[in-house]
Simulated assay, not measured.
Amino acid sequence: MRARSFLPAVLAAAVLTVTGCGSGSGSGSGSDKGAGSSSPAPASGPASSGAGATGSADVPEVLRFTGTTVDGKPFDAATLAGKPTVLWFWAPWCPKCRAQAGETTKVAADFAGKANVVGVAGLDKNPAMRDFVSSTDSDSFPHVADEAGDVWKRFEITEQSVYVVLDKDGKTAFTGVLPGGKGLADKVAKLTG
């Protein structure tokens, strides 16, 4: 019954962050994790999928989920396997998220073909998510519309404006807040050689 006890904690954390838009400290509350760190628990329910496009043997468990992008296209995280991946968890009304959009878009362009960048929008409805992507000119990489919070729960994200950086094998290399996205490029560069 872990899900029943976990869900109220996630919802309570989400309510708390709505008023504060993240941790508020701006001090980069993230943590670098070594290669031996554990992957997030698999999601349950419809956001989980089996193998995906590249076959189950090649896809780490952490990338076995599907969704729909803010522009209505199907999304299969299995397609991210084999390259470092940045998952950017944001909310459309969050000023810290808006401040991160420019740097995140730049990292997506600078590392195109070498690393994946995916936005994971939550804590609002899809029309607001689409407006955020349009107004921040961050439409050069996919954004999953996670209205139900399935991907957020999968990665145990309890506040917006958080980055999860995975290495090419799907192991977590970094999870945390990067004010204005500063330092994201360095974290990705270390993983792409």
Rank of each mutant, 00 (worst) to 15 (best):
R2I: 14
R4C: 10
R4Y: 05
A13C: 12
A13E: 13
V15W: 13
L16I: 09
G22S: 03
G22Q: 03
G26A: 01
S27R: 04
S29Y: 00
G30L: 02
G30K: 02
S31V: 15
G34E: 14
G36W: 07
S39I: 10
A41I: 06
A41P: 09
P46E: 15
G52Y: 06
A53K: 11
D58M: 07
V62C: 04
L63K: 03
R64C: 02
F65K: 10
T66R: 15
G67W: 04
T68H: 06
T68P: 15
D71L: 07
A78V: 00
L87I: 10
F89N: 09
W90Y: 14
A91R: 06
A91D: 14
P92A: 15
W93L: 05
C94E: 08
K96S: 08
C97V: 09
R98A: 08
Q100Y: 04
T104V: 12
V107L: 02
F111A: 11
A115T: 03
V118G: 00
A121W: 06
G122W: 11
G122R: 13
K125L: 12
K125R: 12
K125S: 14
A128K: 15
V133T: 11
S134T: 14
P142D: 15
V144S: 06
D146C: 11
E147P: 04
A148M: 11
D150R: 04
D150Y: 02
R154T: 02
F155M: 10
F155K: 13
E159I: 02
E159Q: 13
S161N: 12
V164Y: 04
D167G: 07
G170Q: 01
K171S: 02
A173T: 00
G176D: 06
L178N: 08
G181A: 03
L184C: 08
K190H: 01
